[in-house]
């Protein structure tokens, strides 16, 4: 196991930020960590990096106790933080050089790795420029170059594609896959469900500091494969609509988000016409109707009662 966390607890006074979390990440995985803002993802990552002290539990990385082997373990980890973490007053080359030296690289090996990281992220031509001249996507790529230039065994990417153009996003996702093929294990957190679906082999969903679901994409989708999900766009909303629909036979869950109604029913409930009648009976016009296939977004909504971008 690259990461083995057991019964981890972290409290901030009364707030339980990480609540008895246990998870294992195998070598060579791209591990997706999902959760809305404030779910405890970053706290969990910070404890893995030794930046936040935890109250209970244990963390083993590369099968070594983190507290005892912090220096050795950190040498093998690369972090791509959620926010850009680059020096605006150093050139792209100097930024990569700075972080390379932090990880103990020097001499010719350092120079080779800087060139390699800049080539990998497509910044070779701009290596003498200061990041203030870069676009958002280029800054994100430099952020990645700084994290990977020491060839870490474990790369932690905390929402690396926030606020960038589609082209840079595609490039970053390709980079993650390439890095993984080169032997790095990746922990990837994102708000973009489609990214996680595309690149992650194992996914853990976290909310309020607790793991609420985990497994492969297929396993997670299977969790709701026994359900029928219908989304109805409404012209207006009615006060009792949700409660009345919940009373219909076979309805497991009903959620209203702005003018969109999500109804989850047991498979084969055959209650769609009754749902439509219930809406129509309240004088609400149906603007659109969609019968959904299971997605990770749907899983998240069902498990947490809110959308991932909340």
């Amino acid at each position: 196991m690259v990461v083995n966390i057991k019964n981890l607890v972290k409290r901030y006074n009364e707030l339980l930020a990480v609540d008895n979390v246990s998870l294992s990440i195998k070598e060579g995985e791209i591990f997706g960590l999902l959760g809305p803002n404030g779910a405890g993802k970053t706290t969990l990552i910070n404890t893995i990096l030794g930046l936040t002290r935890f109250d209970e539990g244990s963390i083993e990385i590369f099968e070594k106790d983190f507290k005892k082997h912090e220096y050795d373990i950190k040498k093998e980890i690369g972090i791509v933080p959620q926010d850009l973490a680059i020096f605006e007053d150093l050139t792209a080359y100097e930024n990569v050089d700075y972080f390379g030296r932090l990880y103990g690289l020097k001499g010719n090996l350092l120079k080779e790795r800087i060139e390699e990281a800049l080539n990998f992220t497509g910044l070779q031509e701009r290596k003498k420029d200061f990041p203030k001249k870069f676009s958002g996507g280029m800054k994100r790529r430099l952020n990645i170059a700084c994290a990977i230039m020491h060839h870490p065994k474990l790369i932690i990417m905390d929402e690396p594609t926030v606020g960038i153009d589609p082209q840079s996003r595609k490039m970053i996702l390709e980079s993650v896959k390439k890095l993984n093929k080169m032997g790095s294990t990746v922990i990837y957190t994102s708000h973009y469900m489609e990214e996680v679906e595309e690149i992650c082999s194992n996914i853990t969903i976290i909310d309020h500091g607790r793991i609420i679901a985990k497994g492969t994409k297929e396993e997670l989708k299977a969790m709701i494969a026994f359900e029928e999900r219908v989304t109805i766009q409404l012209s207006a909303i009615s006060f009792n609509l949700v409660d009345d629909i919940k009373k219909i036979d076979g309805v497991k869950e009903c959620l209203l988000q702005e003018n969109e109604l999500l109804v989850v029913s047991v498979r084969g409930a055959g209650n769609l016409s009754r749902i439509i009648d219930e809406v129509g009976g309240k004088g609400i016009e149906i603007k659109g109707l969609n019968i959904e296939k299971p997605t990770l977004e749907g899983i998240f909504l069902i498990l947490t009662g809110r959308s991932l971008r909340d």
């Binding site: 930046l51 950190k74 972090i79 933080p81 973490a85 680059i86 932090l102 990880y103």
Partner: peptide, 11 residues
Amino acid sequence: NKTFYRVLSSP
């Protein structure tokens, strides 16, 4: 600018 965070994530 979070470089402090990144530096302290290193050894």
